[in-house]
């Protein structure tokens, strides 16, 4: 698994949102993005996810150029900003609808993912009744349930209690051991240090620093 960003620039209405970002990410690594609000973390994640087109530069995933050879990464799970699901359905039903689009996992896998993040698959409460922490956990379950090669998580531990955070760590470690690429953005520097192998600091759309973390 290999993800390469080559000189990514993104300009929106005369503002440079991303400035000459080049990165190579190998599978089996957790990459952390940190920086102040508005520094371009979410935009970079959206670009990697194929949701934004770079103004110039390339995103190459396993030799295939995003936007040219593929429209979205072939195997990806994302949680960008606040999770949002269908209010009138249970967590399980929400994930079942999404899983049915690709059809690569069944109900058993979904239930097991829900348990991994600390949600009860048999919980009959509708999504609208979920607490913030439960919504966040469901968002993480949604991102990882199909065992994707690339997992992009923006503020994954927002509103999650300590036991939930440990579960998230365990999930990310499992994915890492399976050789997946995990990209996270997190305001909590301490937590970032615990989760990420490499931490990139961003400012005004540029990467201004890199720290290799020996976990």
């Amino acid at each position: 698994m290999n993800l390469e960003l080559q000189n990514i620039h993104k300009k929106i209405r005369k503002n440079n949102i991303l400035n000459d970002i080049s990165l190579t990410i190998e599978g089996g690594k957790v990459i952390g993005l940190k920086g102040k609000n508005g520094c371009g973390k979410t935009m970079l994640m959206r670009t990697i996810a194929g949701l934004l087109r770079p103004t110039s530069g390339k995103v190459i995933i396993n030799g295939e150029e995003l936007g040219k050879d593929i429209k979205f990464p072939r195997s990806m799970g994302i949680l960008i900003e606040n999770p949002s699901f269908l209010n009138g359905y249970t967590g399980l039903d929400n994930l079942k609808i999404l899983a049915s689009i690709k059809g690569i996992i069944g109900e058993d896998e979904i239930k097991s993912t829900l348990e991994k993040v600390g949600l009860d698959p048999e919980d009959r409460r509708k999504y609208r009744k979920y607490s913030l922490g439960m919504k966040q956990k469901l968002g993480i379950a949604c991102a990882v349930m199909e065992n994707p090669d690339i997992v992009i998580l923006d503020e994954p531990i927002n509103a999650i209690d300590q036991s939930g955070v440990e579960k998230v760590r365990r999930i990310l470690n499992d994915l890492k051991e399976e050789g997946k690429i995990i990209i996270i953005a997190c305001h909590d520097t301490e937590e970032m240090e615990l989760l990420a192998d490499e931490i990139y600091e961003m400012e005004e759309g540029c990467i201004i620093g890199k720290k290799i973390n020996h976990i």
């Binding site: 593929i70 429209k71 979205f72 994302i78 699901f85 929400n94 999404l98 689009i101």
Partner: peptide
Amino acid sequence: LDRYGLQVLIRSDSR
């Protein structure tokens, strides 16, 4: 697109 549809979009593999 702002909400649940984003998850649908990336799973559809095609804009």
